[in-house]
């Protein structure tokens, strides 16, 4: 019988990186993901650059407005990093929150050679500052594309409590590559939104197994929406970030054409499938219903066998 959390003696850095990504705070994720002691935060909590809107609603603010941005080193090389705190207002984008990420991406564009890691953990736009938040999403999407055009690699890491929804899902779609864990979910409309608009027959948001097999990390990996599937540890996300940074190719019109063709191909092959299990079956996976229960290592082995996207698309 294997015990998932046996206590053994490990060096402190090693022990830290075995920590759960899902459970860690945004600041802890950043600290443990990058090289020890290398993180420098921009506009940190001591600057008290809080949301100008929340007080109008008599709601509590957070000193960093729910996002950590900064620079550090990954295996010795410089990186920019942004991490959303999914527990503060569901990691939602507000005016300041969004501006911090936009600024980071523009700095990366101007420098040109330093990649950006975005640790998504968001339900989308913050309702209390919807206009500012929607504008922020548009600005960030533009900033991602401008950075990529300037040669910057932009990697999304997704495995937090809030998943990656709404505008976060759109931004993730603009990234050079994504790594996702089982807990991470990527979508634009959330389960409740779909149920409200299309009815419970279309999507039962309380059926958590349905939510995960439609939006969860395993499905995104099998469908090609995410490049890498990782287990829920900080070390696994670190390894994935390094792997992606070394494998991303140049961005240009050919990438977009390849992406368009990949999506058309996906629609053609799976457009008639009513459920993710049908898609997995169509992919030739035997016993597709067993996928949600597969441990991470077995799933990764399976996913590697199933398909390696040949096209140079994201």
């Amino acid at each position: 019988m294997s015990a998932p959390h046996t206590q053994t003696t490990k060096s402190s850095a090693e022990l830290d990186r075995t920590a759960s990504w899902y459970e860690a705070s945004a600041r802890t994720r950043v600290r443990l993901l990058l090289d020890p002691g290398s993180v420098v935060e921009f506009i940190g909590p001591e600057k008290r650059e809080v949301s100008p809107h929340l007080k109008l609603f008599d709601l509590p603010e957070q000193f960093d407005d729910g996002i950590v941005v900064g620079r550090g080193r990954l295996d010795g090389s410089p990186v920019f990093v942004a991490a959303q705190e999914g527990r503060f207002m569901g990691g939602a984008f507000g005016e300041v929150h969004g501006a911090k990420l936009t600024g980071l991406l523009r700095a990366a564009r101007d420098i040109g050679s330093v990649p950006v890691l975005i640790l998504f953990d968001t339900g989308g736009v913050r309702l209390q500052e919807a206009n500012a938040g929607e504008l922020a999403i548009a600005e960030i999407m533009r900033a991602v594309i401008e950075a990529r055009t300037a040669g910057v690699k932009v990697i999304g890491l997704i495995g937090g409590r809030a998943g990656c929804y709404g505008g976060g899902g759109l931004i993730a779609g603009c990234c050079s590559a994504l790594a996702v864990s089982e807990q991470g979910r990527i979508s634009v409309s959330g389960p409740e939104v779909i149920e409200t608009n299309r009815g419970v027959e279309e999507f039962d948001s309380r059926d958590r197994a349905l939510v995960w097999r439609t939006m969860g990390g395993k499905h995104r990996r099998l469908l090609g929406g995410a490049e890498v599937f990782v287990d829920d540890t900080i070390q696994d996300f670190r390894d994935a970030a390094l792997e992606l940074l070394s494998s991303i190719r140049a961005f240009g019109i050919d990438t977009l054409r390849a992406e368009q063709s990949r999506l058309e191909d996906r629609l053609q092959r799976f457009g008639a499938c009513p459920d993710a299990v049908d898609i997995w079956t169509a992919e030739g996976i035997p016993d597709a219903v067993s996928i949600p229960a597969l441990p991470a290592d077995q799933f990764i082995a399976l996913a590697d066998k199933v398909r390696r996207s040949s096209r140079d698309a994201r």
């Binding site: 019988m1 294997s2 015990a3 998932p4 959390h5 920590a19 759960s20 899902y22 459970e23 089982e182 807990q183 309380r206 059926d207 958590r208 197994a209 995960w212 969860g216 395993k218 949600p292 229960a293 441990p295």
Partner: peptide, 29 residues
């Protein structure tokens, strides 16, 4: 929370060797 032998329902499923089958409302996979 790092002291807990399991920190999620999924961890409990792993501990059980896949024998525990939690109701859907407790799942996040």
């Amino acid at each position: 929370r790092g002291m807990l032998a399991a920190r999620s329902i999924k961890d409990l499923v792993h501990w059980s060797g896949g024998l525990y089958a939690p109701p859907s409302r407790f799942r996040n996979w």
